[in-house]
Design a binder for these strands. Sequence first.
DNA 1: CTGCGGTGATACCGGCTCGGTATGACGGCC
DNA 2: GGCCGTCATACCGAGCCGGTATCACCGCAG
Lengths: 292, 292
Amino acid sequence: MDTLETRELRYFVAVAEELHFSRAAERLGIAQPPLSRAIQQLERRLGVTLLERDRRGVALTGAGQVLLDEARAILDGAAAAARRTRRAASTTTKLVLATKAGANHELLQRLLDAHTAEVGAVGAVEIEVLLCGMGDQARMLRDGRADVALMQRPFDALAGFDTEDLLTEQQVAVLPAGHPLAARTSLTMADIAAVPDLPVARWPRQDGIYEPGPGPEIHDLSQLAQLIALGHTSAVICASSRSWLWSSHVAVPLTDAPHVTTVLAWAAHSRSRAVAGLVRTAAGLVRTGARL
Amino acid sequence: MDTLETRELRYFVAVAEELHFSRAAERLGIAQPPLSRAIQQLERRLGVTLLERDRRGVALTGAGQVLLDEARAILDGAAAAARRTRRAASTTTKLVLATKAGANHELLQRLLDAHTAEVGAVGAVEIEVLLCGMGDQARMLRDGRADVALMQRPFDALAGFDTEDLLTEQQVAVLPAGHPLAARTSLTMADIAAVPDLPVARWPRQDGIYEPGPGPEIHDLSQLAQLIALGHTSAVICASSRSWLWSSHVAVPLTDAPHVTTVLAWAAHSRSRAVAGLVRTAAGLVRTGARL
DNA sequence: CTGCGGTGATACCGGCTCGGTATGACGGCC
DNA sequence: GGCCGTCATACCGAGCCGGTATCACCGCAG
């Protein structure tokens, strides 16, 4: 009497996201009445009202919001479980590593090299690199499409993952080559903020929403690169990302920007030998300890 | 065709733990044939053999082991979801804080005081302290019986939780008052290990198993305290735990033991206002920064 | 070798739940 | 005031779940 079925959670998430029974039912590929009934059942079982059915529309209650968060996590977990199980059964042990496209070039290269060198020919675990945009690594890890990911503190949401610190570095300001500030040898955050003609680009937050502000909204690095080259914006990125800069870009160290730590992250309860091996390799990389 | 139901996962976990269909069925309160069929269905759906049915006995395949881990996490998550949802609906916003019985007395006291002072009378979120043994906090957090927990790095398994560092401290050796080493002002790990008549007590690991060793197996602090007082064992604990020492105990600082950081931990995806508030309070505690 | 006990798998059957269709109650809007 | 759109209710058929009975297979004791 206490056990939430994933079917119910799927239904509830659909309704909670659409805030509309008929649309949610359509999305689920079922009719509206069974959906209504399923939600009622769920509410009765929990003894809690999850949705406030006001005339004209449905609203989440506080408890509903809590369950929505929980349910999403569970459904991701279930999808991940299926994927990981299937992958564990396939003979070719392949490890999927998710990383932000364009970031951490050199670190990734060194990690892959070290991994190849370490495992050698025996039990060769192939690593497949999965390039994704902004905050996608977290989702990839959560739903099992990736086994490990390179992520950056404090930018990425690391909650729920195990991590191993790999590299801590300064941030730099990236400016168009012609800009007055580009001639400086170092800058502060205040310097950048004080230039009204060069608003700093805005990244989406973890929920995909952009903070309000003057700068352009950025989706990927190539877009950013172009906008900087055009002299329309500037950006604050970590030092190692210099590798993708254009000749018309200039990177200037920022003295007071928070440091960025690139970490290797994996699903907390993963006990996979392959993941453990890669983590060990990565840890070794840090100990032998070249800084970029 | 892709969607794991929690019922199936419950069934699978039972079989995987018992390695015996009939016993598992009994534990689940159903008959054996439906259970067999459910597992077959699950295997067919995943396209993976999870169990190797050898004559006389069942064994987990690699994929089965993976699914077992995943399934446990999902089931804990589902139980947590139900509990948290119900709690969110109850009007009395109560926060359950889990902590190791006997550890972090003063820190906990300060945290509670600060919390009371901060929220004041308005929206008073009551905190219920849940004392638990060894590694129980993680389970409590995972299955939703607790909202936050005081845990210690590197002892506790923090994987999967968000954390806020509260206090880093040295460890001390606790010895019976009469022991020769008790007169020293500081010790090293080697000093302790070199005393054969006082084997260091052993705590259970995260899976509840004890590492082999000469020392007695410890379940809780009162048991430990008594054994030390009797001169049967010694222990290495963090400095703040001195508060529960008896008069017949002596605590000696250890110069080379790893530092212990007490952290406030909570479920990664928790967006509860109450939890967020307590975390902010705790962070403030650290900033104002008295060290014990 | 042969019955016995114990394993999981199969066959079949009844009941409950799920999903579909039809319809109702209720409020907003032209 | 009709019309539309919302979610809830009523009813019905099919499929799935769980139970009982039984089978196939193996180890073991006599």
